[in-house]
Design a protein around this nucleic acid. Sequence first.
DNA 1: CGCTTATTGATATTCTTTATCAATAAGCGT
DNA 2: ACGCTTATTGATAAAGAATATCAATAAGCG
Lengths: 129, 129
Amino acid sequence: MASRNTVQQRIIAEQLRQLHSHPTADEVYQAVAQQRPSISKATVYRTLNKMVEAGEAVRVVVGTGAERFDHRADPHCHVSCVRCGKVEDVCAGSFADGVDRAAAAAASGYEILSHDLVFEGVCPACQQA
Amino acid sequence: MASRNTVQQRIIAEQLRQLHSHPTADEVYQAVAQQRPSISKATVYRTLNKMVEAGEAVRVVVGTGAERFDHRADPHCHVSCVRCGKVEDVCAGSFADGVDRAAAAAASGYEILSHDLVFEGVCPACQQA
DNA sequence: CGCTTATTGATATTCTTTATCAATAAGCGT
DNA sequence: ACGCTTATTGATAAAGAATATCAATAAGCG
């Protein structure tokens, strides 16, 4: 028996799909706990890691602090606000990130599996203050 | 008196300049401690953060685990090996990363200050095994 | 309906980084 | 060269995030 389909995993996956805020593991836990108060934080961490490994989610590593998770598995990049810490998608629609994996592979000798592109800046809201 | 020129800071800066392995704060501490065993880990953390803030070093955030520091402050990107965790520079010399900050700014409304491009893959050594 | 065992929940533990605070020393004026 | 002020250090506690451990639970097979 390779793997089992548990309620916990289904709820976590669904919550992550609904959260478009690039939540931390703890934030996913908060959302899941609304629906299933008995869930353990360890289960959330385990399940999120499993989803990342299965390619069903993406781990977004931004600056310092906790890791964040993205329900979108298709290639796209992120902006994070250095003031408030918010993370958003960029490259929505027609904007291609222009990253040349082949060139990186050639230059490094690595077999390139993926890449992450993160912009740091100040979000529109924080530009006001 | 704005800031002081201390031996500790000089040793840390010099060690970081000599380490081209994108060391973690702890690895920098190990190197510095060779030369000044009485140094505190807190001082290493503090000084590295100060250097990053001053633009004299770069914090490289790669996958999970500890943060890494780069003596190079000029814009370039990184490859990390998903097997052994090693981090190396790419984009050495003529390879430009082709990232379009203006487009990201236009698409997001953010004021873009910097960007990080990290490739994940398998390094030549790990490809053997 | 049992049985096996993957998964869970609760908690301890590890690991990384920051906070605290008395002691030290950098660098100014004299 | 000598104090004086206070930025910086060293040692350690504390915070925070993620993983490890392990008995209890439940998924899904026959």
